[in-house]
Design a protein around this nucleic acid. Structure first.
Length: 154
DNA sequence: GCCAACGTTGGC
DNA sequence: GCCAACGTTGGC
């Protein structure tokens, strides 16, 4: 059964349009164990909401999918990378990435609008102090976001 | 730029 | 194992 996820990215660094241009991308730089463990649960074909954080305004930009399951994130071994982790050894990698691909760009839904969607009342994204860059969504939450983005008048 | 939230680190 | 210090995230 397919699962649903939310991926955060700062659009100044990597936006949904970048993903569309690149066709697929390793989701690098996750250095949080909880987020990493979620990525390890992902299966090919799982759907994701692509969220722009640290943006003006922040919000949802599109739908993506998991194109490849978790494998070691190579940036952890690259001393020139901002994601370099000297404590991680190739023989025992600490951090993984998954490969994601674009599915459909959505009309932008700002964080303010997300807060108004009743189905998202329990969503971790909207919880105070939430900093997880990768988190699970229920199918219900996923569909509510897509429906909100695509059904409203523009 | 500020600051609240929260994860990680390291001394003890 | 506790907890203070520190770093990062992310909304504003």
């Amino acid at each position: 059964m397919a699962a649903y996820w939310l991926f955060k990215s700062e659009p100044d660094v990597f936006s949904y349009d970048h993903l569309v241009r690149n066709k697929r991308e390793g989701w690098d730089g996750v250095r949080n164990y909880q987020a990493r463990n979620f990525m390890r649960e992902m299966k090919v074909g799982d759907k994701g909401i692509f969220y722009h954080s640290n943006a003006t305004p922040p919000g949802v930009a599109g739908v993506c999918r998991v194109a490849k399951t978790a494998e070691p994130d190579p940036t952890q071994f690259d001393p020139g990378s901002k994601y370099y982790d000297p404590a991680s050894k190739p023989s025992d990698p600490r951090w993984d990435w998954v490969t994601v691909a674009p599915v459909k760009k959505l009309p932008f839904v700002s964080l303010d609008e997300l807060k108004s969607i009743p189905e998202l009342a329990e969503c971790r994204l909207l919880a105070k102090g939430n900093r997880l860059s990768v988190m699970p969504l229920t199918e219900h939450e996923f569909e509510a976001i897509v429906a909100h983005a695509t059904s409203r008048r523009r």
